[in-house]
Nucleic acid binder design. Structure first.
Lengths: 147, 147
DNA sequence: CCAAACTGGTTTCATTTGTAACCATTGAAA
DNA sequence: TTTCAATGGTTACAAATGAAACCAGTTTGG
């Protein structure tokens, strides 16, 4: 019987992780260098920038973060005065989070950088490759969603 | 002037990370539940299982881990007596790492589980989707490699 | 030779993370 | 109502991580 071997280089979970890690690491330089943000903080900023006001729970769902990450990221952005909390009228457990002027300014500054990053990444690919990436990612998302 | 907005859901770095995180998290249950391994430990096991003897540096390159991660993973696997170190004859800084019987046994046990996991993941996709995933991942790897 | 500069690998320290316990509030059930 | 389960969010603690300092050993250049 032949001893079964696993080619790590071809193993999808490994490749995917490695890829995401590399991309994410490179992208993180943008928000880390510029503002010293962590990834959860960046995502919080992005979520609020995109949606306006949100609750912490909604933020967690929207950006796939555990509630403790959200909690800490929100605390930090609040400390920076990039967002404010307003208690919900009906349910006093809930807080609505909104970016301040400074928060919006930071968001507005980040968006073009983020878009440029993505554009440059995709620019390294041919049209067919880009199509493969997009549909491959979508397919996996769908497959995982209904797992 | 329209305020630029970034759709996090469509932003490639985010999607990629989210995807890899989900897959990796699910897969980690296999080695975590079964043997209480961390990801670096699993990768070390996988690397040595695949290549036989390796140095720590080689392991780091092969499996994309920082040297401190490798160092700690190796220390733990050594503690479990899953691997042994043999000093290099010529260069006394270098150690060659090899799985013990117990290490190999664990590796042999994990390989089919890993393969099954990957197979089942891909089985949720259509043939075209699978092709897109494979070529998309490869394209991104190539694009990042030559960056 | 001998002092730098370099490399393989480990350790230290500060930061980040995950899990679980927790507090306050709300909703549902008795 | 009173009680009990559930929910929004925070906190405490342990484990995982990354950066930089570190300790051999090795190589290179003078």
């Amino acid at each position: 019987m032949k001893p079964e071997i696993l080619e790590l280089q071809s193993f999808l979970p490994y490749r995917l992780y490695r890829l995401a890690d590399a991309v994410s690491r490179e992208f993180s330089r943008i928000y880390k260098d510029r503002h010293g943000l962590t990834r959860p903080e960046w995502r919080t900023l992005a979520g609020l920038g995109q949606h306006g006001t949100m609750t912490a729970t909604a933020l967690g769902e929207q950006s796939a973060m555990h509630k403790t990450k959200v909690s800490r990221a929100v605390a930090e952005l609040e400390r920076r005065r990039w967002l404010v909390r307003t208690p919900d009228e009906k349910d006093r457990r809930v807080e609505h989070l909104t970016l301040t002027k400074a928060g919006v300014a930071a968001y507005r500054e980040m968006v073009p950088l983020a878009k440029a990053f993505e554009r440059e990444l995709l620019a390294r690919l041919s049209t067919e490759q880009r199509a493969a990436v997009v549909s491959g990612v979508a397919a996996l998302e769908a497959a995982l969603g209904k797992s």
